[in-house]
Amino acid sequence: MRRRPLLASLAATPALAQGREVDALLVLAVDASGSIDADEFQLQREGYAEALSHPAVLAAIGAKPRGAVGVAMVEWGSPGGAATVVEWMRVADAAGARALAEAVLAAPRSPQSWNAIGDALEHCTRLIAAAPFRAVERVIDLSGDGPDLRSLIPAATARDAAVAAGITINALAVAAAGQVTRFGEPLAETYRREVIGGPGAFVVSAEDRRDIARALRAKLVREIA
């Protein structure tokens, strides 16, 4: 007797069915550079897991026409070294969100250094192009605690290429109040100038990694809704 695949009943699984339509494709591009120690990294992962499974985010997903989004997670840092740590998953309900949160918490940390934001954006653009889901809305959601430092591709160049491909880039600046970059401006301003792009693109700030869950939750609701 032929058995139905068990994974077919899950609301969020590694994407196997080609061409499935969702309301949005969302790549979470997370800073894993050398400036983040092990404790900060764990706080960051927990913040993402909490935000992704929050009822407000689920309500925003459920209010969309198809009631589903495709999500993948990328870690970035090293020049040319951005890595996909959670492959595409479809999220349509609480069970799917929990599965995604568990995948985020369980993924091994990738080896990274420096701050190569341009290379991260280029990696995410290719990841969206190869996604197994279809969606009109396509978003890269980049978080970081510093400006672009060592990219093989300048951040603004990679940003412009992504926008030309129909992708919106939003950013989460993790920086304490009063902190400035080497350009003498707050990190959020650097991200506005070099990183974000596309219709309605925006930057949200978090004071530190303990504030990521709150900031990311608000950001995800705004992006999805």
Rank of each mutant, 00 (worst) to 15 (best):
R4M: 10
L7G: 14
A8Y: 06
L10S: 09
L10M: 14
A17H: 09
R20W: 06
D23H: 03
A24N: 00
L26G: 04
V27D: 05
A29L: 12
V30M: 12
V30S: 05
D31T: 00
A32T: 13
I36G: 04
A38L: 14
E40N: 08
R45L: 15
E46C: 01
G47N: 02
Y48I: 14
Y48G: 03
A51S: 15
S53D: 12
A56K: 13
G67T: 03
V69L: 12
G70T: 06
M73N: 00
W76F: 05
G77N: 00
P79H: 05
G81Y: 07
A82F: 03
R90L: 01
D93N: 08
G96H: 02
G96D: 03
L100S: 06
E102C: 00
A103C: 09
L105D: 07
A107V: 10
S113I: 08
W114A: 13
A116F: 06
I117K: 01
E122N: 14
C124I: 08
I128N: 01
A129F: 01
A130V: 09
A131T: 06
F133N: 05
E137Y: 02
D141R: 01
S143V: 04
D145T: 06
D145V: 03
A156V: 13
A156W: 11
A158L: 04
A161W: 01
A164Q: 13
A164V: 03
A165Q: 13
N170T: 13
N170W: 08
A175V: 10
A177L: 11
A177R: 14
V180W: 00
E194W: 11
P199Q: 05
G200T: 00
F202Y: 14
F202N: 05
D208T: 04
R210H: 14
R210L: 13
R214V: 10
R217N: 11
K219Y: 09
L220D: 11
E223Y: 08
I224N: 10
